[in-house]
Design a protein around this nucleic acid. Structure first.
Length: 892
DNA sequence: CAGGTGCATGGCT
DNA sequence: TAGCCATGCACCT
């Protein structure tokens, strides 16, 4: 199509047609090629005078509404020199730029992405402005929707053609941005800039700044969404590029498919940022500013926020997630930010606290606390509507998304998991994704990583993996890292996947349960601190857990064969030091067979049977019978196991037994979970779920002390917000059963109260407890007290148990915590949570359900004691036994 | 009483 | 030290 393709080239300019010996590149054609121009035309083009020179008599000239400057709007050449105004007419880019500098948050989806009729939104001045500007989509420029929306002009002119220029003003930011060091970018991604670097760029109106600053052309990305992933992968490990824009990189398709209007208004002022960002800034740890560069053509206050986004909010969206999102549409995904769900976020209150800067950068600007409804799509394409709003807070704002519980639960996310926010371009739709903590991509950022996974996660680009912490904790080796080359090829984790390590450790040894499962709690309030957790201090108990974890991990590590360790003694402890890093392999159990030969037992990954292999056999993490080359008769999973159960019991180290128990419990729990379809239940499981999977110490560490079992804070006790799906009346999920019990209990109470009132009339002096003033004592609610005076001897209502817990285990964290609670109502409520969820549910819940009375008798409680899970729950369940009497005596 | 809302508090960066 | 933000909790419905 381009003249360059013809044998005898002539100038592409139809008014010229001069034969070309040498030609220069002009504007981009719909084919993606460039108009080849003669020197004269090219000069005119580059000078921005092409239309003035050749199209002066053509139709389509308009005056800028602001400055009156004449702009040719009738051809592609000057396509980028103006914007269309909503009210009609055009504005030259110079004026447009001036007028938009003051525009808040224009880079925001069109109003269609918010709920339609929202009076308060209309009152929101910012929204008005937003609507005015962003009615055209996620671009910071104005355009006429009729012209630029959808395929409109684009399909007519240059379908699928990627443009190379960026938003007007982006260059300003680029130029002003100290962070955006071109030289550093070049170092990082020279190939991406070769066109720029080699100085062979050709500039046309679409690539020429008004002030003469040229922008390199962005290379085409026929399949931007794929490129996005690729880029993500490629650059992911390079944290040094983290200051660059990921989002920019993800806007390629947007520009490709819907960029004509963008070019119309933006490319006139192409920026360095676009190609730079698009190719370099695909780092997972994006710099939001980069996103702003592309998306927000104007320098705005919120853009500053983007520049300052903390690394922990950089989206580490995985390729899989990207593909999942992109599979639903042809859109380009712009990862915006992510956040580790706190207990509050994942709690039933349904409020997700948004990082302020993220909210201000990526969400519509709101001036009223009420905010506005925000449509967010999940990875499955399902649309949710959240209320995006803020609270005044210390002369600042706290942004929250309300009503997220159903979404969070549908994604089965818990505290510690990660929610990601992305934007689909060009629609501008927000996409909310979720990532389980255990599958979080390893933190490539500048913050330490502390989860089990990540402790084993890749350390650097050289394929090294962090074992230093492990080693230092155990003091066993001095090496700080294990070169990947030490690992069998199939055990080398992918550099960009934190999950690979869990694969490595997937064995029936549940060592990896602790290794891979739980994010480490930070010291502060036990908030979850995942890979990107900002609070990285670890509670003592967490350290203990880590040690255990590492110790367990040590069980998986062994020296490479034929490597003899140096043994030295430190403080009486023999320490083996290997010059070479250990190898991660399938855990085995060393033993001596009947012939006195050293062997090891290894468990098949598939059939779980134990097989005997030579002592020096090095097995990779996933080992199956089929790989049993040493015992062909046992090389099939169908072959019987040589070991008896008893032998196995003796053989397996304690730690493994513990692990097995844990696993067993975990399975019970998971079975339970499987039955808990209620969203509320899931939410509570986010808080209580892992109780019996992890040792108590670690659980304590995994939970905000105030969110331990027994926590009565609003987060924990909050019932379904009502915004989510309601349970059917016939639903017999645990939550509903619990609620029904609760109702029954309340009915009973009411009846009792009635009876007592009647009795009071007759015998007023027999109600001492009701005269106890309301205070912080364990039973401070008169109603509660009345209730505690249960006429049903030998029966305990679960509702009274928390108080008992406080009395019996005052030193317990939960007890102390609860004692600070202001009223018994919360305790009571909390107890409801107990009975409905968590470990206690396994025992109490079921028992309670059986009789449906909401009361458990002593035997039931005793039975609880035998629960293998020694958690707070146990206390809660057991304690009432010996305290009921005292309660009764107090009450009487 | 339960659920919802909005602000205050205080740990942390 | 200021600002952020996780959380608690008072207050309202």
């Amino acid at each position: 199509m381009s003249s360059s393709s013809s044998l005898t080239k002539v100038c592409f300019n139809s008014n010229c047609k001069e034969p070309l010996e040498k030609w220069r590149r002009g504007w981009r054609l719909r084919t993606g090629e460039y108009a080849d121009l003669c020197d004269r035309c090219a000069s005119a083009y580059e000078d921005g005078k092409f239309c003035e020179t050749f199209h002066l008599k053509a139709s389509g000239w308009s005056c800028c509404e602001s400055c009156g400057k004449q702009i040719h709007c009738g051809c592609i050449v000057s396509f980028h020199m103006f914007i269309l105004l909503d009210a009609g007419g055009i504005e030259c880019m110079t004026c447009a730029k001036k007028s938009y500098i003051l525009t808040p948050n224009p880079a925001w989806p069109p109003p269609s992405h918010f709920l339609p009729s929202q009076p308060e939104c209309l009152k929101d001045l910012s929204m008005k402005r937003w609507s005015l500007i962003a009615g055209s989509g996620p671009v910071p420029w104005r355009r006429a929707p009729s012209l630029f929306n959808g395929s409109g002009i684009q399909s007519e002119l240059q379908p699928g053609m990627p443009f190379e220029v960026d938003v007007a003003g982006g260059i300003d930011r680029f130029r002003n941005s100290e962070r955006f060091s071109l030289s550093s970018l070049e170092k990082k991604q020279e190939s991406s800039f070769e066109r720029f670097i080699d100085g062979k760029l050709s500039f046309g109106p679409s690539e020429m700044l008004e002030d003469g600053i040229a922008a390199p052309k962005r290379e085409e990305q026929p399949n931007p969404s794929v490129n996005v992933s690729q880029l993500t992968s490629v650059v992911k490990n390079d944290s040094s590029t983290s200051n660059l824009s990921l989002a920019s990189a993800f806007s390629s398709k947007y520009e490709a498919n819907d960029m004509n209007y963008a070019c119309a208004s933006l490319s006139q002022r192409p920026t360095l940022s676009t190609p730079v960002a698009k190719h370099v800034c695909s780092h997972n740890g994006m710099d939001s500013a980069g996103e702003a560069v592309v998306q927000n053509g104007k320098v705005r206050g919120d853009c500053r926020g983007r520049n300052q986004l903390l690394p922990r909010y950089w989206p580490r969206i995985t390729d899989e997630e990207l593909q999942q999102i992109s599979s639903n549409s042809n859109s380009v995904i712009t990862p915006l930010f992510e956040k580790i769900l706190s207990a509050s976020d994942a709690g039933r209150i349904g409020r997700l606290v948004l990082p302020k800067k993220c909210a201000e950068a990526y969400f519509p600007l709101i001036s009223q606390p009420e905010g506005l409804p925000l449509k967010v799509q999940d990875l499955k394409g399902k649309e949710w509507v959240f209320q995006f709003r803020f609270w005044p807070n210390n002369n600042s704002r706290m942004y929250v998304l309300e009503g997220i519980t159903p979404c969070i639960q549908s994604m089965q996310l818990q505290a510690g998991d990660v929610v990601t926010f992305s934007r689909l371009e060009p629609e501008g739709k927000l996409v909310m994704g979720g990532r389980k903590a255990s599958t979080s991509p390893s933190d490539q950022g500048d913050e330490a990583t502390l989860t089990g996974n990540e402790a084993l996660a890749p350390e650097d680009d050289n394929g090294k993996y962090k074992f230093g912490e492990l080693n230092s904790i155990n003091g066993l080796t001095k090496g700080n890292s294990v070169p990947a080359s030490f690992l069998p090829v199939n055990q080398i984790p992918k550099a960009d996947s934190g999950t690979s390590w869990s694969e490595i450790f997937k064995s029936k040894f549940k060592v990896n349960e602790t290794l891979e499962a739980k994010p480490i709690r930070s010291k502060r309030k036990n908030s979850i601190s995942g890979s990107k957790g900002k609070r990285l201090r670890i509670e003592n108990e967490d350290v203990i857990e880590l040690k255990i974890t590492w110790n367990q991990a040590q069980g998986l590590m062994r020296p490479p064969p034929k490597i003899i360790p140096m043994v030295y003694v430190v403080e009486g402890c023999e320490i083996e030091e290997f010059e070479h890093a250990p190898i991660i392999g399938r855990p085995t159990i060393p033993a001596i067979d009947h012939f006195g030969e050293k062997i090891q037992w290894v468990q098949c990954n598939d059939c779980l049977k134990w097989r005997k292999v030579p002592a020096n056999a090095l097995l990779h993490s996933r080992w199956t019978c089929s790989e049993n080359v040493w015992g062909l008769d046992r090389s099939l999973c169908s072959a019987a196991e040589k070991l008896s159960k008893e032998e196995l019991e003796d053989m397996i180290p304690t730690i493994s037994k513990v692990s097995f128990n844990k696993k067993k419990n975990a399975k019970q729990d998971s079975d339970l979970v499987a039955t808990l379809e209620g969203l509320d239940t899931l939410a509570n499981l986010a808080i209580q779920g892992e109780e019996d999977v992890l040792p108590a110490s670690s659980q304590a560490g995994l939970r905000h002390p105030r969110h331990k079992l027994g926590c009565t804070c609003i987060v924990c006790i909050q019932p379904p917000s009502g915004k989510g799906p309601k349970h059917e009346q016939t639903c017999d999920c645990v939550v509903c059963k619990s609620l029904k019990r609760r109702c029954k209990t309340l009915r009973d109470r009411r009846e009792k109260k009635q009876l007592e009132k009647e009795a009071e009339t007759a015998y007023p002096s027999q109600r001492p407890t009701e005269q106890v003033p309301d205070n912080d004592s364990s039973v401070d609610d008169p109603n509660e007290r009345k209730f505690l005076v249960s006429p049903l001897k030998g029966q305990i209502d679960l509702n009274i148990q928390p108080e008992r817990d406080e009395e019996v285990s005052p030193g317990s964290e939960s007890g102390a915590m609860k004692s600070s609670l202001p009223d018994a109502t919360h305790r009571n409520l909390r107890q409801q949570g107990y009975s409905s969820l968590g470990v206690g549910e396994n025992v109490v819940g079921k028992q309670m359900q059986e009789d449906g009375t909401g009361r458990a008798n002593f035997s039931n409680c005793i039975a609880l004691d035998s629960s293998p899970a020694k958690t707070d729950v146990d206390h809660h369940l057991i304690l009432p036994l010996d305290t009921t009497g005292s309660t009764s005596s107090t009450a009487t």
